[in-house]
Write a protein that binds this DNA or RNA. Structure first.
Lengths: 213, 213
DNA sequence: CTTGATTTCAAACAACTGTTTGATACAATC
DNA sequence: GATTGTATCAAACAGTTGTTTGAAATCAAG
């Protein structure tokens, strides 16, 4: 029995991911999941215990799949911090809004928006290391900043990326169809990198926030 | 019969807002709503038709309340574009994450994250004018930018603000309790304004995006 | 007070939920 | 071939859901 065989639990976890992502935990029914997985209704409880356990497994699999598909690059010592930041943004964006992603990104964002108590821990463990990586990059780019400013800056960068996932249905209504059509990952990553690097360079030069009013 | 009287539909719409915000549309039950509103179970169907219509009314009321509580300031001709941007960011942040907000912000963000087909129109109509205002401000700040760049820049700014609403439970896990305690609206607005204005000024000076790699 | 419409209420409704059951089929082991 | 443990299945389970019903209560005129 190979690990990626077309076994019943595998088919269920796959169908569960799609339907949980499309409808959320409450609205998704195990009947629909089992129908799509071509399995019996009792299969969910037999193989996973209950609906919630299946949900957790689906989320885990989703995250694992994203991590495998779009891994954070390992940078050598010669790579500049600016390039690292560009890579970081591109990778994050790819994970969030990959055109052929399917349901995984949707599921992850839904989970972040309303974290199940059982999954909060997973989200924490998977997000925290990325947050640490970004903070190390920022420590190189704006060494004069203290931890608070580094954190807020990290949130500014991550926020720009996640926005295209969270607010996607709204964005679709705000710009023309042709313009939205052109929103490829590379374009968005380029813009966010440019926008952020301009700010970071100015911050590094000035050693002070700009005067206001 | 005064408009803000303690009438049954009013009590129901209020309880509905709280519970929809806390649990989402599917998980919220009309029984719980009616119990909290101290109304009979049949009251929802009698006064609103069905559960979905009640949900729409609750979202409408939520948005109306936020708009009244934190109105966009009307700027005179002497106000600089930088000040307008600072005001815009502060207002947006206040609406998203006001400490005494109660349920309205939660309900709005939930609606943005997964818009009900019936509410998409409302979200569109309420967000589009704000998006237009921000674009006018950006047209003043980076006149050399074309529409695409203005739009992406607008999303960069809005994304930074909304992040503190959407990702709040995650943010809480990433920074220490004391640091999170200090995340007041004014501090966040100040940072986002600084971060963005630095970038916009550099863009206005350079007339070109910065070179990369 | 009487009338007539509006609002409230307890009870029941039909439909659907996640879950359990016990029988059945299947494979491997002795 | 009998036995054992696993997997699948149709059927039923108990509970909850949104909604409906028809009678009682309430209220505003005539």
């Amino acid at each position: 029995m190979s690990t990626d065989a077309d076994t019943t639990p595998q088919r269920i976890i796959e169908a569960a991911g799609e339907i949980f992502a499309a409808k959320g935990f409450e609205a998704a029914t195990v009947r629909e999941i089992c129908t799509r997985a071509e399995a019996n209704i009792a299969a969910v409880n037999y193989h996973f215990g209950d609906k919630q356990r299946l949900y957790i497994e689906a989320v885990k699999r989703a995250h694992h799949g994203r991590e495998l598909l779009f891994p954070m690059p390992e940078w050598g010592p010669e790579v500049t911090a600016e390039t690292k930041l560009a890579d970081f943004i591109l990778t994050l964006l790819k994970r969030m809004t990959s055109p052929d992603s399917g349901w995984e990104g949707e599921l992850m964002s839904r989970e972040i928006a309303r974290p199940t108590e059982a999954c909060a821990e997973l989200a924490r463990e998977s997000i925290r290391p990325h947050f640490a990586v970004l903070n190390e990059i920022l420590a190189e780019l704006i060494p004069a900043a203290d931890q608070l400013e580094r954190h807020l800056t990290a949130f500014s960068i991550v926020g720009q990326c996640l926005h295209y996932k969270f607010a996607d249905p709204v964005i679709r209504q705000l710009v023309s169809a042709e313009e939205y059509e052109g929103y490829h990952v590379e374009l968005l990553a380029q813009h966010i990198t440019d926008f952020s690097l301009r700010s970071l360079r100015a911050r590094a030069d000035n050693h002070k926030p700009p005067a206001r009013r």
